[in-house]
Design a protein around this nucleic acid. Structure first.
Lengths: 193, 193
DNA sequence: CTTATGACCAGAATAGTTTTTTGGTCATTT
DNA sequence: AAATGACCAAAAAACTATTCTGGTCATAAG
């Protein structure tokens, strides 16, 4: 029964473990215990299969963040809560990390496009929240698109890039640091006046 | 006469225009109007030639930044001035940009290493300045290494990555934005108390 | 004797060719 | 109507032949 779910699960597994290129449709059908032709009853092609998985992942992250957000009143608390919500997805992130690594080794245009879409999806989400916060005067006026872009990139740097040459940061540290740099700023209180 | 300078100039030119891989030692010797063997009297090999060029570039940037810094009294002014100083290097940056692009297309370990060294060089420089500023209590206490890392990355994002999908930012905008996000923070004045 | 050179060579990169793999189809089965 | 897997064209990989290039060094110039 529900063959489509089996296929999605199998594909997610294989993409996460072996990457896009090294995942064959044959293998997916084997893992899903489904005829290869069956995959094509549900997905137009390999690219669409990956796209759908990523789309679902983005939707789930959005949902997780929104749920956390609703528990808090002030922007700063909501901001931290949303970050926590997203950071819970550790295993799900593995797919994204695997695809990012793949992009460094091979030049697979499909993977590049899918990841770019994912990035834009997340940035748009952050952008929405930033816009609302500006309207409510919970943060200073700023370019929401640019702010979202920098927040996302900073998040990636703290979670992924920093650990390449240094001790990796804990979830708590990441949340603290983003709050510290984006909300508080480095200027000491004495200078504020 | 001063053959070493001729070689450095020729190599810089060719590396900037064609990248590391596509620059042949033959071509460098031709441009420098020097026998190929002569290059090897001054540089151990192709890698060392690039390294030396990058090292000099880093030193020049450091000097430019320091000179600007000395003209200003407060950390914020010095910070902006140093950024301006570095941003003046437009043409010099072309070498770095070319090498960065090359890294995306081919997997040349030497280029990767050289660029990583360059990045670390700049981060170390920023780190020094941040440390001093903390000591003088011109900015809040923070991890200097991490702060330098984020500042550098943010700078690169604003100057390079942002323009891939958006209108490029002017020098003035970049300086303003780094100041805005790193020093001021998004938290509005009302929240400060 | 010191400095400079470019013909030369081994190994790397590239181009060309053959073989294998794989995304996607569709006639057949369930 | 839903599912399958043998099948095929096209892409990737493996292999080979050819060209290119970093680095050397015997020789030349100063």
């Amino acid at each position: 029964m529900n063959k489509k779910q089996q296929i999605l699960l199998a594909a997610t597994q294989s993409f996460s473990r072996y990457g896009y290129k090294a995942t064959t449709m044959d293998r997916v059908s084997k893992i899903a215990q489904v005829g290869k032709g069956t995959i094509y009853l549900h997905f137009a092609n390999k690219e669409e299969l990956l796209k759908e998985i990523i789309k679902e992942l983005a939707a789930q992250m959005r949902l997780a963040a929104d749920q956390e957000i609703n528990k808090h009143a002030t922007f700063i608390d909501r901001f931290e809560a949303a970050l926590y919500g997203i950071l819970q997805f550790q295993e799900r992130h593995e797919l994204i990390i695997k695809l990012s690594d793949e992009l460094k080794d091979f030049r697979t245009p499909i993977v590049k496009k899918v990841l770019a879409d994912f990035e834009q999806e997340i940035c748009l989400y952050i952008e929405e929240k930033v816009e609302k916060a500006i309207q409510k005067q919970e943060i200073k006026p700023c370019d929401p698109k640019l702010t979202a872009f920098l927040m996302y990139k900073t998040y990636i740097h703290l979670v992924n890039d920093w650990k390449e040459n240094h001790q990796p940061l804990s979830r708590e540290q990441v949340v603290y640091l983003i709050r510290f740099y984006f909300l508080e700023g480095l200027k000491p209180a004495a200078y504020q006046a």
